[in-house]
């Protein structure tokens, strides 16, 4: 649904990086290498990196059924 606020494993706040990560690596306009973007954002540990890499926004999918 919405990006998790913190990393499940270590508790670092990862939500604040989502929009920039999405703009630069996830969308069609953003075609940077996700690994480079994460390095740039300072998301170093692999537990935090997977939080952003594997996230899918679902608000648009569920909103018609409100």
């Amino acid at each position: 649904m919405m990006v998790p606020v913190r990393c499940f494993s270590c508790g670092t706040v990862v939500g604040e990086h989502w929009e920039e990560f999405k703009a630069r690596a996830e969308s069609h306009e953003g075609d940077e290498d996700p690994a480079d973007v994460l390095d740039d954002l300072g998301v170093d540990r692999h537990c935090c990196r997977r939080m952003l890499i594997s996230h899918q926004d679902l608000v648009d999918v569920v909103s018609p059924y409100q």
Binding site: M2, V3, V5, V13, G15, E16, H17, E19, V59, S63
Partner: peptide, 24 residues
């Protein structure tokens, strides 16, 4: 998170860019 308004100016969200919920 940055939209949160506190009654003590010294207490504020440490990060302003955390999405809480997307509103349609």
């Amino acid at each position: 998170s940055g939209d949160l308004v506190s009654n003590d100016p010294e207490v504020e969200p440490a990060d302003d860019n955390i999405p809480i919920i997307e509103l349609k």
